[in-house]
Design a protein around this nucleic acid. Structure first.
Lengths: 202, 202
DNA sequence: TTTTACACTTAACACCGTTAAGTAAAAGAG
DNA sequence: CTCTTTTACTTAACGGTGTTAAGTGTAAAA
């Protein structure tokens, strides 16, 4: 009696269909410029159907961002298994973070740039989010770089948060201030990473 | 025949009244959560009256932010006349920038964190804005620190933008991620400034 | 064959930014 | 003092938004 199973599969399929449509629209037009009705039109269902699968627009957004940033974490983990030197992992991880943000600017915007509390009520806290996991990788790499004497000693949390601030700074500036006359992008990114790392060395 | 003058004064008074009401509401509740109708109710005029004084909601916001950030520039200029060493000016200027952002988080958000293009159409570009002026002070201080051999030589623009990215990073993280378990605020800010400056030295 | 459960839709609510048309009072002209 | 014009503001409306309550038809279960 696989009726239940079939129904569940069909539900999951529609859920994913909503997720895909919304993700594409958010990515292309930005969260604020995509209405629930627009998503509904795209998948050829009524707007209210979406509410059978997601609590509200913010929840839909949150699920999408979790899905997206899970991929960043995979990339970082791949780096960690590929390179041996902790300081190299740290550098490459930072670079991966920035590149990822620039690759998905609208996703990056809603998860890291714009105040979550506005979008996500209080329901989805920082605990257990992809954001937390990504940050914990930084902490890990900082800790190991310190152990290997590749950066100077200090409070691991403070240093990790400083690095995060730095890479978040470039990423978000480049995303948000399109019309600013930035120097060549790669030069700015490299200089930021170099300056931060150098500032942490002996 | 001072009729025209009196009328102009009265208009300016109402304009400022709108500006003040909107500024306070934006600061307390955030741009997105304040409607034109709410501002109108506050000043006891009809919503459409606001459109006689400001092009649209984004324009109103822009004028407010210009007014606010003009004060940051004054602070920075005061620092420049108070301290002699360029590197000290640079440090204190960076600190002033961050403190200012944290003091007016909602103003900071709409001018520096959230993508301007969304709010400000294309009418108010970066050219001539308070944001530009503030940045040019950084450029100036970097340039002079370099001349005084207090930081290592390099492209002034690249370095200035790197510093901006750094201080914008802390500021915006602290504003946007209220629920993140940051280390003590001052420690994080100081560490960020120290790391950046150290990374720029010989 | 009838009843129940479910997946989805229609209609509506209370808001939003913004514009077009209207109004009443003040200013200017004779 | 009267008539016309200008000005400062308001009312009403348009087309949108996120979201919810109520309704509907079909498929599954009894």
């Amino acid at each position: 009696m696989g009726v239940k199973e079939r129904k569940e599969r069909e539900q999951e399929k529609l859920r994913q269909k909503i997720l895909d449509a919304a993700s594409e629209l958010f990515a292309r037009e930005g969260y604020q410029n995509v209405s629930m009705r627009k998503i509904a039109r795209r998948i050829e269902y009524s707007p209210t159907t979406i509410y059978l699968y997601f609590k509200d627009k913010a929840d839909l957004l949150y699920q999408i961002c979790e899905e997206t940033f899970a991929n960043l974490i995979k990339e970082i983990e791949k780096i960690e298994t590929t390179f041996y030197e902790p300081i190299i992992c740290l550098r490459k991880g930072m670079r991966a973070y920035i590149d990822f943000g620039l690759k998905y600017p609208n996703h990056y915007e809603v998860t890291f740039i714009a105040p979550l509390s506005d979008y996500l009520g209080e329901q989805h806290s920082y605990e257990g989010s992809s954001g937390q996991k990504a940050f914990e990788h930084i902490v890990q790499q900082v800790s190991e770089s310190m152990k290997a004497c590749q950066i100077k000693r200090g409070d691991v949390n403070t240093i990790s948060q400083t690095l995060w601030a730095g890479i978040h700074g470039v990423t978000s500036l480049l995303i948000a201030h399109e019309d600013f006359p930035f120097v060549e992008k790669d030069e700015l990114i490299d200089n930021t990473i170099d300056t931060l790392i150098k500032g942490l060395q002996h």
